[in-house]
């Protein structure tokens, strides 16, 4: 999919650029883009390293475990009916805590583990269950508390206050996650009404 995207963007760029006489700019873009990418990584890699270090201490000293306990009541609200003592619920809580701290390295394996535990608990099926969908949207919405990469990039471009966006980021994260969760519940609700109607129709036959 990403190959098609790459091909499409380059094709569009060449056609549009040549038609509008922007060949020089296009040529320069090809030559300098690699340098821009390297500079971008050099800009963010330092703060990534700093946060990686700090967050590792948070993880080893048990701060993330404390947060895992702290967020369990909220997760109970999202994953209705899921046994809070189950391995699946524990894995979901650990995955969410890692996401909050921006521990990408730790969050993905924990999330995959949570997905497998859900599969074990709810039986292997060819389709996604409601809890699986909820876990997925919990991860497609970014809930990272401190958006360090963005803040670093803002500072590098001369922002007076790179973290002023923090309240906006938190509000948008929470509300967009809520939107996704409500969508999962709404679609699920519509589906079960449909199934119920089908059953009723069969009964009446």
């Amino acid at each position: 999919m990403i190959s098609i995207l790459l091909g499409a963007i380059i094709t569009i760029s060449c056609i549009y650029g040549f038609l509008n006489g922007n060949a020089d700019e296009l040529s320069n873009a090809v030559i300098t883009s690699g340098q821009t990418a390297v500079e971008l990584v050099l800009t963010i890699i330092g703060s990534m390293a700093t946060w990686g270090g700090v967050m590792k201490i948070a993880q080893k000293s048990g701060i993330t475990d404390k947060v895992t306990k702290l967020i369990s009541p909220f997760l109970k609200l999202i994953f209705k009916g899921l046994d809070t003592g189950s391995e699946a619920f524990k894995a979901i809580a650990m995955n969410t805590a890692a996401n909050l701290f921006g521990l990408g390295n730790a969050a993905t394996p924990l999330g995959i583990n949570a997905m497998r535990e859900l599969e074990k608990l709810e039986g292997e099926k060819s389709y996604a269950t409601k809890n699986m969908m909820l876990l997925a949207v919990l991860n497609t919405s970014s809930i990272e508390l401190i958006p360090t990469t963005v803040a670093t990039l803002r500072l590098a471009h001369g922002s007076v206050s790179p973290l002023e966006i923090l309240p906006c980021v938190l509000a948008v994260s929470i509300l967009s996650l809520t939107t996704s969760i409500l969508c999962v519940y709404a679609f699920d609700g519509i589906n079960s009404i449909k199934r119920h109607r089908k059953r009723q129709a069969k009964k009446n036959d």
């Binding site: 999330g111 995959i112 997905m115 497998r116 599969e119 292997e124 099926k125 060819s126 389709y127 996604a128 699986m132 969908m133 876990l135 997925a136 949207v137 991860n139 497609t140 919405s141 948008v172 994260s173 509300l175 967009s176 996650l177 939107t179 996704s180 969760i181 969508c183 999962v184 679609f187 699920d188």
Partner: peptide
Amino acid sequence: YFGATKVKKTRHTLPSALAGDFAA
């Protein structure tokens, strides 16, 4: 996430996730 399971149909995972992205 679903690649790690036997799930073939992700059902309304993608629409729900994209609705969240649009809201964002």
